[in-house]
Design a protein around this nucleic acid. Structure first.
Lengths: 143, 143
DNA sequence: GTGCATGCAAAGTCTTTGCAGACTT
DNA sequence: AAGTCTGCAAAGACTTTGCATGCAC
């Protein structure tokens, strides 16, 4: 998520809730870190099930939420389809291909974007979610 | 939706499908045009039901989709919650308040944003969806 | 032992779709 | 008359939640 407050929060500490090192949590984190294609929760679920077949979807969702709060993974909300997760937690953005659905990284300084905002009608902008769309290199060539 | 291709499409013609002027379609369009608070489909449904109580949600959804394709209304996909619709179809963006959920308009030239993109890793960007978040004027004062 | 975490099932939210009948053109 | 549109109900996609048991600390 390209959220400024989120990034700031990551620099500081997460919440104070006691958190336990369960096998499921470790496997979910490992899955996100090994899947470098911006996996959906379903992708993570499938990956974890290979090593731990009895895990439930609820556990995957719960752990993805916990790990997001702790700043261990990046949550990418996607309008119109399943949210995705990213092992890269530094500030960057994403582009999704309208043909094949693959997600690419996009580098862009958020300051530039915020400074070009002309009129917020009094709204205090703290951050933003952005998803670029278009064609990935493969689909550009294929077309 | 802050989508460049969508805006371009609006300038041209919609699809060639024959479309009929039904009372329900007219009421859905009228509702979006009269509700200036970026209504959700549920808001539109409620508004239309006051004049036409027997309308179904499916009809509202179908007509919102048709009107979006025709460029009569603007569809605002929102990750994590219900999509919204806008009577303003010209190029502009939106900010949603993290406290009360109200949606504000934001003016920003899309060229500025696209020119500040540093590296797309070969991805051809055609457009983008963006939602700013923060606090609306009322919630800033209230806090 | 405490209480967070898990697994299962059910529910929740938002949206689309199949179908038969109704209405626009 | 022809074909789109409607309303109803059901399903679909994605995610969360209640509850009893289990495991980390």
């Amino acid at each position: 998520m390209a959220n400024i407050s989120k990034v700031t929060a990551k620099a500081g500490a997460a919440s104070c809730a006691a958190t336990r090192n369960t096998r499921q949590r470790a496997l979910v984190l490992e899955a996100v870190r090994s899947l470098h294609n911006h996996p959906t929760s379903a992708d993570v679920y499938d990956a974890v099930r290979e090593k731990h077949p009895s895990i439930s979807r609820a556990t995957v969702y719960r752990n993805l939420n916990v790990l997001t709060e702790q700043g261990e993974v990046l949550h990418i909300p996607v309008a119109g389809s399943a949210d995705r997760y990213d092992f890269r937690c530094d500030c960057h953005y994403h582009a999704i291909c309208r043909e094949c659905g693959v997600v690419y990284d996009v580098e862009m300084p958020s300051e530039d974007l915020l400074s070009s905002v002309r009129d917020t009608h009094g709204f205090l902008i703290e951050g933003f979610d952005i998803i670029f769309n278009g064609l990935c290199p493969d689909c550009v060539d294929g077309a």
